[in-house]
């Protein structure tokens, strides 16, 4: 029972972490919460659904194309809703993000429909027994492995690549990054592309796991992932990964033992963390700097 909850929690948490990375990366560079990110994730799930339909049971091509399409959607969202507001107060940009969130989810309802759609199978389900009472299936393994691989790749990108370093530099100090020759427009586009493509991957994984894709799926997942990002310390990439895992695990155990309070307990954990570590578990510095 405990092992089973831990497995489910880690799996769910790794998906939260993928989505949370999109919130935290954008916050790091632009210092606002991109509330449209949950809906970008939802669109990722729809892209994946169509791609899986046309490409059949080929997981990797579906994943890669989903990530590219969702990444492009994220960049477009930035161009339309945030770029014209680059010098506006952050509250204005955040409001624009809320508006964009509504536009994206309504667009999905308009263009695709408000029903819950099944995700075409990319592979057949096999259960594996882990001890007497714990079961893991191949979809869960695939979700977990994909999430971990993507996070390892992201880590490499952020720490080793030229643009990854530019993103970190710009997160710390935009003005000085500009003096180094970093073009902020490019950094912002790359940040939105990468963050959104991870959200798209999460859309595919969640759609596969629950076999359900619907136009409002971005709301709850977005809120949870946002919580995970806050939990880890918004702006911190390892924080988002850790916060996602923690939230997934706490939520699953809460669901198992106090089933009615599952979401309440997840948010209670966030409130407690923020009371004692206002900058999140990974980042006390931001709190000092920004309040």
């Amino acid at each position: 029972m405990i092992l089973q909850q831990l497995i489910n929690g880690i799996m769910l948490g790794s998906v939260y972490a993928l989505i949370a990375l999109g919130y935290t990366m954008v916050y790091g560079v632009m210092k606002f919460i991109n509330f449209a990110h949950g809906d970008v994730y939802m669109w990722g799930a729809f892209f994946a659904m169509f791609l899986a339909h046309f490409l059949g049971g080929q997981f990797l091509p579906v994943l890669i194309l989903t990530m590219i399409l969702t990444g492009i959607l994220g960049v477009l969202v930035e161009r339309v809703a945030y770029k014209p507001l680059r010098r506006a107060p952050r509250l204005v940009v955040t409001t624009s993000a809320l508006g964009m969130s509504i536009v994206l989810s309504n667009l999905a309802r308009l263009l695709i429909g408000s029903a819950t759609y099944p995700m075409p199978k990319v592979l057949a389900v096999h259960d594996f027994k882990l001890g007497p009472s714990a079961v893991i299936n191949n979809i869960q393994i695939l979700v977990l492995v994909t999430a971990v691989v993507l996070m390892v790749l992201l880590n490499w990108f952020v720490n080793r690549s030229r643009y990854g370093k530019a993103i970190r530099a710009a997160s710390e100090d935009q003005e000085t990054a500009g003096l180094m020759g970093v073009n902020m427009d490019n950094v912002v586009s790359v940040t939105f592309f990468v963050g959104s493509s991870l959200g798209g991957a999460a859309g595919l994984l969640v759609g596969m796991y629950y076999d359900a894709v619907y136009s409002t799926m971005g709301y709850a997942a977005g809120l949870k992932a946002f919580t995970a990002a806050i939990l880890g310390g918004i702006g911190s990439i390892p924080g988002a990964m850790f916060g996602g895992l923690l939230l997934g695990i706490v939520e699953n155990f809460a669901g198992a033992f106090l089933s009615n309070y599952r979401d309440g307990i997840a948010f209670l954990v966030m409130i407690l963390v923020l009371l004692f570590r206002p900058g999140g578990l990974f980042n006390a510095k931001i709190y000092q700097k920004r309040v």
């Binding site: 030229r162 370093k165 530019a166 970190r168 710390e172 100090d173 000085t176 180094m180």
Partner: peptide, 17 residues
């Protein structure tokens, strides 16, 4: 205005961006 969270080496790399 050094990039405080980045290493010395990474700061130099940023100079050569």
């Amino acid at each position: 205005r050094v990039f405080a969270g980045m290493t010395v080496r990474e700061n130099l790399d940023m100079g050569a961006f």
